[in-house]
Design a protein around this nucleic acid. Structure first.
Lengths: 134, 134
DNA sequence: CCCTAAAAAGATAAAAAATGTCTTGTTAGG
DNA sequence: CCTAACAAGACATTTTTTATCTTTTTAGGG
């Protein structure tokens, strides 16, 4: 359980690759896809999501492509994962009050809260710089 | 992401309910299902899985039903969750060597290992006794 | 020895999510 | 205005989840 989907895997591979390239090198989606062995059309969707929240910058037209949106050390793995997989929510009831019908005295609730916190902590302290190994 | 499935939720609800009952009270599946508001046929499958690994004891025929397999304080939430959802594996590459094709120098690998460890730690230190609030 | 109660096991089915693909639109450079 | 490249949305396939139904096995009681 708790498995990352392909989408999440691809997202990490793609953006880590981008982070490993020279900072000013505009990368073609097709090149990234080939390099990390991911279907280009699928990776395109992923990078669109990245682009919307500024994790990468995109340029259209001739000479276009992608650049990292911020310095690699300023992008955490947590951001990358949550960008494509949504927030870390081990159980519905950690989302917010009212989500858990078996409400008030749900004894399991705080446990999932703890799990959520731990996972976020681990993912948040890892940056693309660490992963790209520059 | 990292969400528990319904099956996992139902499993927890069901076995926590069982843990909250008097230790010698043989409970009918239909009663448990009604009490925790889970489809009886689905819960049946779940309890079959529990039964196979000894988390619960089952008795067939008239007067049959379920009992907890061990004392509530001897059953961890980790066991319950893994019984129905499989092992905690945030990413394929934590399963074992060779699983990750982008093998040797997969920098993300150790991060998922850490996530896996943290999650297991949290779930392992919570028992059914804690959850049943007896 | 049957009848009924109860769980076990296996087959099947509907719904949702994951995993892609394809087409069309938009933007920019030459 | 032609081509390169990303953006956006519709569509299709496969897998997983979420069940349900039927048949079988086990056990107790009359």
């Amino acid at each position: 359980m708790m498995e990352l989907t392909r989408k999440g895997e691809y997202a990490i591979r793609g953006i880590v690759y981008l982070a490993s390239q020279p900072a000013d090198r505009v990368c073609l989606l097709s090149d990234i896809a080939a390099a990390v062995d991911v279907p280009a059309t699928f990776l395109a969707k992923i990078f669109q999501q990245f682009s919307k929240i500024g994790l990468v910058k995109s340029y259209r037209g001739t000479g276009g492509g992608f650049l990292l949106g911020r310095l690699p050390e300023k992008i955490t793995l947590l951001e990358v994962v949550e960008a494509v997989e949504g927030p870390i929510t081990p159980n519905r009831c950690v989302v917010g009050p009212g989500e858990c019908i078996r409400d008030v005295s749900c004894t399991v609730h705080p446990v999932w809260k703890r799990v959520q916190g731990k996972v976020r902590d681990v993912l948040e302290e890892v940056t693309l710089k660490d992963l790209a190994g520059v």
